[in-house]
Design a protein around this nucleic acid. Structure first.
Lengths: 224, 224
DNA sequence: AAGAATCTGTTTGAAAAACAACGTGGAGGG
DNA sequence: CCCTCCACGTTGTTTTTCAAACAGATTCTT
């Protein structure tokens, strides 16, 4: 494990913990290492797991296959990121396969030991638990946010929802977004050109001004 | 608090704990009760909170207002359900207002004390933490599932995604869905009549058969 | 600085979805 | 048994999205 300690130390899960504390935690958690070759399956959809995984090296893919066999890649898991934690915690059946995209090293921890605290009642455990909950909470907020935009029917409404919420997050009517046009279109799940057209209309109507990634929402003065 | 103990006891957060254990936990958590009249605000969008709330009686609404003042109700919180837990855990600014829909009684617990364990290191704390994580994990899975359907561009694809995943969840090509047509349309955020038409096409193409809420996915035999 | 690649905004015809209005049949109540 | 209500499907119209292509602007490379 020592080989990838740098990854572990900088991971979201162990954030705020000292190296020596992390080392003692690892044994306390019964963390074990596993390796996979490209294309090997770590987990199968439909199965259950009690293990929280952390990618140490390489990249894992989350792949879903529908009833008719159409495959789609849900996301990639990079070093330092966790996978399958929601399934481990809830005990639900996996909704996707986890596959090694390349030579892969992971660390697995039993969710029971993460959540229950070790017999030593080590004080770092509370920190670890809080970290895990934070990760889940943040993912939750991200998903919720995205969902509120995507629930809108038209591209225009999705845009307004997204921009409005970005403005709120920035605490200002003027703000920058972390996407270029194509990425924004992908994020909102709309067509780029249609979105571009819609942005043009919004600008013409005086609801928004923008320049590259910098947007400013305008108070609707009064109707024409 | 005793007045609403039945609600607390059957809530998801305290699931699997004995009444006497719950009682000792409550003091251990520094749980406090609050009451609100209809229309009163419990929390404001943009603020922060370290408190996890649990509705004891009445109903709370999560309300979002966009930059131009358009209001929308995100959801209602019923007795026994938690609210704002993701914000309390992550420390992020609230993305919505929480308002009493009617006369409301809630219980608030400090997230630190929930996650950190009390000085007594009571053994039920691990259970509580696991329960809280389970709730978040399940919500996470729900959101992820819904998002994968909604990310599809067309009504047809949304339907296929939803049905496929329902089939997997049921472990069978035949299954029932918990929605009527209007509810399904709302869930997938599409027009009901258009969805109905699309269902008709899918049936005509032999991909799906259905009768009311009972659906069966069909192996695509061979192309015509 | 020239050239290549990328990003962005436009346009267009074709496809799809949304919308609105209506018809049907079944469930439940009087 | 009749009536009403509601879920569901159908149809025709309007609106939006999609896909492809193109040009101007910007950035990166050589």
């Amino acid at each position: 494990m020592e080989e990838y300690f740098a990854v572990i130390r900088t991971s979201r899960l162990f954030r705020g913990m000292e190296p020596e504390d992390i080392r003692s935690m690892l044994t306390c958690l019964g963390a074990r290492r596993a390796q996979y070759d490209k294309g090997e399956y770590l987990m199968r959809a439909g199965g259950k797991t009690r293990a929280v995984g952390l990618v140490l090296h390489g990249r894992a893919l989350l792949i879903r296959e529908d009833f008719w066999g159409n495959r789609s890649i849900l996301s990639g898991v990079e070093p330092g990121e966790m996978y399958a934690e929601s399934f481990a915690v809830s005990g639900a059946r996996l909704a996707f396969d986890v596959v090694a995209a390349e030579k892969l090293a992971v660390m697995q921890m039993d969710i029971e030991r993460v959540a229950r605290g070790c017999s030593l009642a080590c004080e770092f455990h509370a920190r670890l638990i809080m970290n895990l909950m934070e990760v889940m909470a943040e993912k939750n907020l991200q998903l919720t946010g995205k969902l509120t935009h995507m629930a809108r029917r038209t591209t225009r409404e999705k845009l307004l929802s997204y921009l409005s919420s970005s403005s709120r997050a920035a605490g200002s009517a003027a703000f920058e977004i972390p996407f270029d046009r194509q990425q924004l279109a992908d994020y909102l799940s709309v067509d780029r050109s249609a979105m571009s057209t819609e942005l043009g209309k919004l600008k013409a109507e005086g609801l928004v001004t923008f320049e590259k990634n910098r947007f400013t929402l305008m108070e609707k003065a009064h109707e024409a």
